[in-house]
């Protein structure tokens, strides 16, 4: 296959970036998108140019490291697929492909296609956990959890934290990312205990970090490689309302 790539090149976070065009030939349709970029980089190095920096690790769609916007869509046009699992057979021979980094204020570009996702970490650190320490916990089967509850919690827990939802959101909101954790933990009996604290703290951190507001576009769900739905945002909205009212009456400590 032959391709024309337009790749975002940016030296570092302080410099201006721009799209640079590269022609690439001899790509196997069975290659993954990242393998195609590997080949581009090999060619660039051999030509004495700087290779394109991009994040990637597991290359099997689970670590959440890869983060490219392909022709305007985070992770590309295939549904529920990360870039590393996107294969070149889904592109046309001779096609022009534009590759950009996630774009949002809280996730600034570090270099080329790599962004700094520390802000997503901060949201998790604000409340994405159950406050128990190692040891001293009850038997795993001590609390039965209805299968449907466990299943929905698992749907939410499938989030890989890539940040495609932020990249896709027209407002650069991290609501889907945040709601996945809130929804998982607030549903389960283990996490319910501190559900009010959690949702208040996480939303507060989300807002402080400069993410945009959710206005119910649904773009996030459309690009989420793990198919996380807006239901979890609805759950967050519910829980936040309850928590806020309790908070107003001094009920959340």
């Amino acid at each position: 296959m032959k391709l024309t790539l337009k790749v975002w090149r940016q030296k570092n976070s302080n410099s201006e970036g721009k799209l640079v065009a590269y022609d690439l030939d001899g790509i196997s349709p069975d290659s993954s998108f990242l393998e195609m970029l590997d080949i581009l980089n090999e060619t660039l190095i051999e030509r004495g140019e700087e290779p394109v920096a991009f994040d990637h690790d597991c290359r099997e769609g689970i670590c959440g490291m890869c983060s490219l916007v392909i022709n305007g869509i985070p992770h590309g046009h295939e549904r529920q697929t990360t870039v590393c699992q996107l294969h070149m057979r889904h592109f046309k021979d001779g096609q022009t492909v534009t590759i950009e980094p996630w774009r949002s204020k809280p996730l600034p570009v570090i270099k080329d296609l790599i962004v700094d996702r520390t802000a997503l970490e901060k949201i998790q650190q604000a409340g994405g956990f159950v406050s128990i320490s190692t040891g001293g916990v009850p038997d795993a089967n001590a609390t039965p959890i209805p299968k449907q509850v466990a299943d929905v919690a698992m749907d939410a827990a499938a989030c890989i934290g890539c940040g495609a939802c932020v990249a896709a959101c027209k407002n650069a909101s991290a609501m889907l990312f945040m709601s996945a954790k809130v929804s998982q933990l607030n549903r389960l009996p283990q996490g319910k205990v501190e559900k009010d604290r959690r949702v208040l703290a996480m939303v507060k951190t989300h807002d402080e970090l400069g993410f945009g507001n959710c206005t119910n576009f649904g773009e996030c769900q459309a690009v989420c490689p793990k198919g996380i739905t807006l239901d979890h945002i609805a759950k967050l909205n519910r829980d936040y309302a309850v928590a806020s009212f309790k908070n107003i009456f001094g009920g959340v400590k």
Partner: peptide, 12 residues
């Protein structure tokens, strides 16, 4: 036990 207490959604 530990993982369940953390909210790991094991199959049920």
């Amino acid at each position: 036990d530990q993982c369940v207490a953390q909210g790991v959604p094991f199959a049920r």
